[in-house]
Amino acid sequence: MLQYIARRLIQTIPTVLLVTTFVFLIIHLVPGDPVEMILGDYATPDSIVAMRGALGLDRPLGTQYVSFLTGLIHGDLGTSIRTQRPVMAEIRQRFPYSMMLAFGAVAVSTVLGVPVGVLSATRPGSWQDTISMVGALIGVSMPTFWLGLMLLFLFAMKLSWFPVIGAGDIGNIPDTLQHLVLPVLAIGLSGMALTARMTRSTMLEVLGQDYIRTARSKGLAKTIVIYKHALRNAAIPVVTVVGMNIGHLLGGAVLAETVFARPGLGKMVVDAILARDYPMVQGAVFIIAMVFILVNLLVDVTYAALDPRIHYN
């Protein structure tokens, strides 16, 4: 297993390299110039040239790419053009909030989604199934942005249960949780719907298998058949979805971050793209890609734990 993990980790290198190269090319290809953005309306030709030179943006693209890679090897993601601070420091400031949001949302979607999926699968065609699946369809279709504003309107404005803005004081757990509930629901509910639908379909497939019939005919309790025999076998695709969700939400929670005025990597990347802050975009994408790959690795390792037939050696 350890060998497998080591091999997978080595394999991440070309993947990450490919991702960063692609991002480097794309961000430099789009029109717009960070220096013109910084200098704004009153940029003069000589001030543009001077600042471009000072920031190293007048060097050939190839040279800029090589210096980005050299920095990367030394663990240096460069300096943000916009803030003039190390990209790593900017990421570190926001990373914990993104992790909280991603894990919170995935926890909500799993804890609520799996039981709903199981309920539907064990009573296909029943009214519970219909309600769950219609609910899931609505959940998947509801835009995060709109749902977030509705949650704010109901729970923060009308009922005053939760605050409207911010992420709370990170050292104060009740405060942090209180600020986390609505954003986590805003993202988690659509994730939950997806998880529920996925659980239902794989459960239905598994429940039709011979070994389930055998288990039932042995006289095992229904709960044991469903949760121990069926769910464990149906879990693999669900785990995949959960893993993808975590990776996706780390950088993709920009709408929730915007609506709830929370710090996060998603908003940071979008702002950096709009400002053409090349080092910031490259650095953030690099980190998000790394986490994505690591979560995927974790998912693969979990497969083996769930299904003893899967070996990696």
Binding site: L149, L152, F153, M157, V164, I165, T258, V259, F260, A261
Partner: peptide, 19 residues
């Protein structure tokens, strides 16, 4: 100084007394 990118959220935070 509190950054609130979404205007609707900003108006809600104001009316609720958070800013």
């Amino acid at each position: 100084f509190v950054p609130i990118p979404e205007p609707t959220t900003m108006y809600m935070a104001f009316e609720k007394g958070e800013v």
